[in-house]
Design a protein around this nucleic acid. Sequence first.
DNA 1: GTCTATAAAGAGATAGAC
DNA 2: GTCTATCTCTTTATAGAC
Lengths: 211, 211
Amino acid sequence: MSSDTVSTISGRERLLATAAVMFRQRGYAGTSTRDLAAALGMQSASLYHYIGSKEDLLFDLSREALEVIGARVAAALDGAEDPVERLRLLIRTHLVTALSDQDKHAVMLTEMHSLSPARRAEVLKMRDQYEAYVEGVLSKARGAGVIRTDIPVKYLRLALLDLLGWTIFWFRPDGELSPNALADIMVTLYLDGARWRPAQDWVAAANGDGT
Amino acid sequence: MSSDTVSTISGRERLLATAAVMFRQRGYAGTSTRDLAAALGMQSASLYHYIGSKEDLLFDLSREALEVIGARVAAALDGAEDPVERLRLLIRTHLVTALSDQDKHAVMLTEMHSLSPARRAEVLKMRDQYEAYVEGVLSKARGAGVIRTDIPVKYLRLALLDLLGWTIFWFRPDGELSPNALADIMVTLYLDGARWRPAQDWVAAANGDGT
DNA sequence: GTCTATAAAGAGATAGAC
DNA sequence: GTCTATCTCTTTATAGAC
């Protein structure tokens, strides 16, 4: 990250950010180029200095969301060896990243159907790759004996992504919980469930000390 | 339910069902009245014999989804006393109901923003009522000592609804799992988590036999 | 209950000046 | 980099015949 990442924001970045906000609120098809331009204080014709078509915005937004989350999660897990710790890091990093740009991630998840078939396929491929990565982390943890084997890993992955992906639709940044605090809750809930435990000493017993 | 519920389908019901399918695939704003009419083998003008406006379709679809799920879950829990059993029935019934009409429920969840403010508020109120009901079931279970107390019940509810609500976006009726089998997985995962247990005898110990 | 015809508004995108 | 002006197409909805 260069030093001007925060302070300087290009015209195109401002356009993308505004598009993310509006597409999330009104949907892609429900947002006109005139609406978008008005929110930026310009005429709709001026948008085409930055983009070739309205669909470019949705496409770039969607790819960016998946690129960022994939890269950050992979980076976070880079040094970690312990399979449960890797899972914890995955949950935390995915959630914190998605919550750091809720608009972009929400739009990617709900507006994909508005892309042309070719572009939709490309975004779906990226999503499938990330989901395969997540399933891989779960699989390794299962191989290490720390994740239950009575549920197919496919459904462990899908349930985890339900939890991670759709939390952005109700999380409020100005609420009582920080993204990190919420991540703690999700880690606990996903790994240990909602049921009360008479004693949680089995956690240490089941853990081992990393391999 | 009258005896002709299944065999006879009124023009209006056919219209609503087709709208649900198309709104889910292309989004509400992305589906034109011409598209919709063409799928039904008629002209767009003919739709207005059944509805007052396109928005009526989205509104009625959304209310119906919430009415049906609220009613079925309440009915399923009607006789049950044991708090864990009530939670199990809630998860199972919610899931099976939502999966029995994925289109309608998916549209309700993702297209609400296309409703007028007044109608959106009405649908949101219905959703809030249902979510309060779910939280009540969790609260009772917590009061009975079967649900963990270290996570605020609000987040137990939100996580559960992530799991229940967003499963309809990946579930395929023609897939390997029946809705009931999937419900089993979700019950297990929500109550007990993804972590491997050295021995699951504590489940019986923590359960009791219903007050 | 479905049609043809059409009104009225809004959409995405381009041309070309500044 | 932003504007005015405008083209062309699509949109929701209505009128009125059958």
